[in-house]
Design a protein around this nucleic acid. Structure first.
Lengths: 352, 352
DNA sequence: ATCGAAAGTGTAAGCGCTTCCACTTTTCCC
DNA sequence: GGGAAAAGTGGAAGCGCTTACACTTTCGAT
């Protein structure tokens, strides 16, 4: 809400008066639409300059029936992924003249209300799968709001963008089994998000294909805290007269993996010798911990970029057929998975 | 831009017609302003429900002369800090009914234009010091836009919020000198941001207070790449017939420090034995690398929260006197600085 | 010179909402 | 039961911008 140091903010009328032209001409100059003489253009530019004129977007939005803004609904902003996603999104949006209005649902007492309000100020909304429940998303659709989902299974009427999970997880798990591991554990609750459920599905499939029994997942939140706890439980189990101790942890994200990895290591368990550990996301710490953490990298920025693009296509009506993109991930092999040294830098691309 | 699945989006007129009431009453019900009968309220609610009515914020903004939105201008979103900052900001904003429109300047060909446009759709703008040059900020002020600066020296007419840097840096440096270090190097270009210049100032002051000559800073960007390069240069210098090798690196951020630390370690230089290393920011990797990285933690989320609050005070006119907040940082001692083991968990609060 | 087309400009009608004001109905107290 | 006050409602005037449409000027070709 610009308001000149002296009094009220300048409006297009003020500019017109000062330039001795009509507001129509001022508008044409400022928007670069329609024919205007060089003289008029100069007079308007000068007047606008002198008055520190900033057009009120709300008025324009009202007139053109367009906000030129996207809504972005995220569950959270912790960790580096969402930052990268947002970065990718913002970049595309900026290049295409779209503002982005961001909303975080975690800790919000009434996400539904917040999001509906958001719908009133943007042309469409991108929702991260973990951020909103299905009814709310469908509510948006009923209100006619274009919606793109990130990391969420396809919903009719919405586009979706996600990164491949199941195949990468299967590939990773198979690799561990190939290297002689016999008792892997999946750490993380598949119910916590679609992505995690897919990762577990891939883990399960790798076992099934070999006729192995599929271990039940260890249903814990995706936090360092939980990773530590899981590792500690394993240490205790060592002394117990129970079944054989697991020789590998396939963790649903890097936080879990890092915490488990260091907890095991500081307690004298050899990683990858006795137990291998893998994560997901390739956070910065994954390459600074030792042994380096084997993990799977998602193209977060790309995810954001594609989501922005899909939404814009919907908003402008450039595309009406639904589209569900799946982006390739990248397996990042480091020492924590017991890979031979020569493979240490090898990276395999998953199929899209 | 909500638009019912059937045709155009419902407007307040549609709701009024369906409820058989005037738009004035509908508005009163929806905004909860003014007296309305229970019957009217029920009819309006139902009609709105049935029509999937979402009020157009642009129209409201135009009428009430308020956007109920904040602009947030950041240089970048890489690394965890900005995510935390944004998180703190978003949280406060959400709780107070403000939307946040975010803009990233890094890579933007014309930040000035982008930001002026932003000014037309928000009630005020928070700018991170590294994101915009001074003239642009002053341009915003001239246009009457309330501005709050983050990590930027005070500017007349703007509020500012930053975290304390100089004293922490001095404290940290003094500690290293106290522990017998004699040839410290500051890594990172003080010109790259206000924060870094303050950190160097503290580093310098610690030297001056002991009558030591102040080493010139090593002017490199704050990247892992640069950290690696600096460390490699030091390794080469080992064999040269030059002056004594530095026995400590005070790095301007954790990226630099982590890269330097691991480069030195993998080349057989003892850390902290031969060389101590410190960083700034306390990224997650700082506690997973080994030895653990001594660093300084900034209250990023708090920084965001305070900035949001200050801006809102300005927007509502609750405060007119400028305010410059400085938030306390926290020294996080780990092994990389050669501190005695007993101190490892000690954390000193800087003065605010 | 003359005419037609193109270029330049202004008038005015919205866009969907809030809110002042005037008006009608209800409520409540004597 | 009568009156004044309160509660409830609607009409209509904006908020600042875009954009048909109508109009005037300029220009080039005949």
């Amino acid at each position: 809400m610009p308001s000149g140091p002296t009094g009220r903010p300048a409006t297009i009328y003020d500019v017109a008066a000062r330039a001795k032209l009509s507001i129509a001409t001022v508008s044409r100059v400022l928007q670069g639409t329609g024919p205007v003489s060089a003289k008029a253009r100069a007079r308007v530019d000068q007047a606008a300059q002198e008055l520190n004129y900033v057009p009120l977007r709300a008025a324009r939005s009202l007139a053109v029936q367009r906000h030129e803004a996207h809504g972005l609904v995220l569950p959270d902003l912790a960790g580096p992924f969402y930052g990268d996603l947002l970065m990718g999104y913002e970049r595309w949006a900026g290049e295409h003249g779209q503002s982005v209005v961001i909303t975080v649902t975690h800790g919000n007492p009434d996400p539904r209300r917040t999001v509906m309000d958001l719908a009133g100020r943007v042309d469409g909304i991108v929702v991260h799968g973990n951020a909103l429940d299905l009814p709310t998303v469908q509510g948006l659709r009923k209100a006619g709001v274009p919606v793109v989902l990130i990391a969420h299974p396809p919903v009719t009427g919405c586009d979706s963008v996600r990164s491949e999970s199941a195949a990468s997880a299967e590939q990773l798990t198979t690799r561990l089994l190939d290297h002689g591991r016999e008792s892997l554990l999946f750490v993380g609750d598949p119910a916590s998000s679609y992505d995690v459920s897919e990762r577990y599905a891939g883990f399960a499939k790798a076992h099934e294909l070999r006729g192995l029994q599929v271990p039940k997942p260890i249903r814990v939140p995706l936090t360092e805290e939980a990773g530590r706890t899981v590792a500690e439980k394993m240490l205790q189990a060592t002394t117990g007269p129970r079944t054989r101790r697991p020789d590998g942890l396939v963790c649903a994200n890097d936080e879990l993996a890092l915490a488990a990895l260091t907890t095991l290591a500081t307690n004298g368990i050899g990683v990858p010798g006795e137990i291998v550990v893998t994560g997901w996301d390739d956070v910065m710490a994954a390459r600074y911990v030792s042994p380096g953490l084997t993990t799977v990298r998602q193209p977060m920025a790309e995810l954001g970029r594609v989501a922005a693009e899909r939404l814009h296509e919907r908003v402008t009506g450039a595309r009406t057929r639904a589209r569900n993109d799946v982006l390739a991930t990248e397996l990042v092999l480091r020492d924590s998975c017991g890979t031979s040294p020569g493979d240490a830098q090898q990276e395999l691309r998953s199929n899209t």
